[in-house]
Every structure is written in structure tokens, then in C-alpha cells.
Computed example of a mutant assay.
Amino acid sequence: MTAHTYTYQRRYCGPLEAVIFDWAGTIVDFGSFAPTQVLVDAFAEIGLPVSLAEARVPMGMAKWDHIQTLGQLPDVARRWQAKFGAPMTDADVDQIYEIFMPLQIARVGAYSQPIAGALDTLATLRAQGLKIGSCTGYPRAVMNALLPLAAELGIAPDCVIAADDLAAGARPGPWMALANVIELGIKHVAACVKVDDTAVGIAEGLNAGMWTVGLAVSGNEVGLSQSEWLALSISEQQQRRQRAAEKLAQAGAHYVIDTVAELPAVIAAINQRLARGESPA
């Protein structure tokens, strides 16, 4: 019996069907302060100061993993060893997580105003027939506190997947993004766009086979409030924008824009690429 090898490429050439958003730094919380500032405060409660810049390094990860990775940063690990006489253990991570969770639940709403242009962008995408998905590094308990507050402000995605919802895990794996595909009833991952402000969130979208859009200015990489951003000189803004955009581009983002307000033009460009037979791979 002779075996034959056949090569057949099945490309999706239809329009986009869904956009899957991150939360903090993407559609709410300009500068992504809720997850980072609260982590700084949680570490302070055990007597180990960490800076906001250090807390931002693992952003986008599930929060238990975020705490563990933060504790493994060389400078933080040295300070931990000097104070406690041993490296951070999983039990230490559990202790900080138990401090972090009630603080995060209590304070997430205070930081989570919609980013300028987010509501208009969501309305534009819905008017085009796109479904709105979302996933986050926040655990479900935090999202349960945030979702009703966000809904009152006009943000109510069709799907919300939290970092601890899935047994498979969270970012940079594709599972939360793919859970959106299932819940939203999307037939082709190439019909989806993942929008995120972190490198690990871009990796999530790429691993799921989706188009990816990085947000340079509104999120973790610049890490400033909108008022702080606007107070910078044009040259300072450009330097910070470029550093953030380069990191997201190096992570593999197909597009990098300042904020979600610019997303509709990118959606149009991706639809044109799909019509030409291009794919996100």
C-alpha cells in the first residue's frame, strides 16, 4: 500500500466576528493601577517594600503567579532573603495572596473608570456585528466586584473569563482566549482579535491563533494615569510611547496603538487583510 501526502490549506477569508479585550489598562483603569498598587500595598503589609515599577514587571499574569514572579525578581528576592532569611516559598505566596485579595476586591472599582474612547469603540464594534469577549489576570472574586460597577458605566462584554476560571490555567497560555471562542460561538480563531496592554496578554492571543493588538499608552508599559500622561512634554510622551510600543511589538503584536479609542481603524485594516486571504499566523 502506498501512502500519499496531501497539502491543503484551509484559510478563513471572512470578516472578523469577535474582539476579546483585557480589562485593566485596556478598557478600564488608564495606567493599570488597580492590580499593581494593591500588590505594592499587600507586600508592604508583611514589611517588604516593592516599587510600583517592580510590581508592573509580571503584569497580565494570574495574580498568584504574579506575586510569585514578583518575589523572584532578583532585587526583590535579595531583599526577601535579607529580611526573612530564606527564599520566598509557595506558602509565602499564599499569605500575600490572602492579604491581596480583600484589598483588591475592596478597591478595584475605585481605579476602574472606562478609558477615554472605550465606550464609543465598544458601541462601534457592536454596530458592526462583532461580539465582545474579555479575559483578565483578575480572579473571579475580583471580577464579581468589578462587573456590576463596569456595567453601570456602560461596559458589559458578552463573555468574561477570569484567571482562575479554567483548570488549564491562564496567560500566556491560550485557554482564556479560547474559552471566549467557545462561549461566543466563534467558528474560526482567525476571526478573533485579542486586545491587551501586556506582553503576556499578546502571547495569549498569538498562542490562540488570533490577531493581536497592543495598547502602548493606556496600559502597564507606560504606567501613568491619564493626567500624568497629559502633563508630559511631547518629547517625553514620544520616548515612553516608543519604549512601550517596542516591547509589545517584540512580543509579536500585529498592531500597536496608543489606546482602545484607535481600535476601529485597526479592525477595518484586519478585515481588509482577511479578505485578501491573509491570516494572523
Rank of each mutant, 00 (worst) to 15 (best):
R11E: 00
A42V: 01
L39C: 06
G31V: 11
E17T: 05
V19G: 04
P15M: 04
D29H: 10
P15G: 09
A18F: 06
D41S: 15
Y12V: 04
Q9S: 10
D29N: 12
E17N: 02
T36A: 09
T36V: 14
T7S: 11
Y8Q: 13
Y12M: 02
P35G: 12
F21D: 03
V40Q: 07
I27G: 05
V19K: 05
P15A: 12
S32Q: 11
F30D: 08
P35K: 11
A44I: 00
A44S: 08
E45V: 01
G31A: 09
C13T: 14
Q9V: 12
Y12T: 03
W23Y: 08
A24H: 05
L16A: 13
G25W: 13
I20N: 10
A18D: 03
S32A: 15
F33S: 15
D29Q: 08
F30R: 13
R10Q: 05
V19D: 00
G25I: 13
I46S: 04
I46V: 15
D29P: 08
R10F: 03
T7F: 06
A24N: 14
R10C: 01
G14F: 02
W23A: 05
T36L: 14
G14H: 03
Q9P: 02
I46H: 09
R11F: 00
C13N: 07
I20M: 10
F43I: 11
F21N: 03
S32I: 01
Q9Y: 07
A44V: 01
V38W: 01
C13L: 05
W23H: 08
